[in-house]
């Protein structure tokens, strides 16, 4: 489990049914690309978040495959449509097998 990996998300608390909302997500992660070398000249192995998904009430919004070219502290902004009240689930998958997730509720009027 990589240390200090923390997800943060920004989701509006309320929306109208069928409204488009903007979601921002970030996870603090070094994203070791596998291109760097240590002081002895050995390649530091790749260790990145390789996948990010956002689901709402079980339905998928977006599914991103990340490569090492995504910057440290991977950031994504995208739009979702909310048909009803419920919960967003955001999941990040690490090369080392760890899975990080966070949820956010939204009320739809």
């Amino acid at each position: 489990m990589a240390s200090g990996v923390k997800p943060r998300v920004k989701v509006p608390k309320k929306a109208a049914a069928g409204e488009t909302i903007t979601i921002k997500t970030l996870i603090s992660h070094k994203m070791e690309s596998g291109q760097r070398k240590d002081d002895d000249g050995n390649v530091i192995p790749r260790s990145i978040i390789n996948r990010f998904t956002a689901d709402f009430n079980g339905q998928n919004v977006i599914d991103v495959t990340l490569e090492p070219a995504i910057s440290t502290n991977p950031y994504f902004q995208f739009e979702a449509v909310v048909p009803e009240s419920g919960e967003f689930k955001f999941t990040w998958y690490d090369d080392d097998g760890s899975v990080y997730d966070t949820t956010k509720k939204i009320t739809v009027s």
């Binding site: 923390k6 943060r8 920004k10 921002k24 970030l26 950031y75």
Partner: peptide, 12 residues
């Protein structure tokens, strides 16, 4: 503050 990666440090 969400876009500012420095705020990760503040949260820590």
């Amino acid at each position: 503050d969400f876009d500012n990666p420095g705020m990760i440090g503040v949260e820590n």
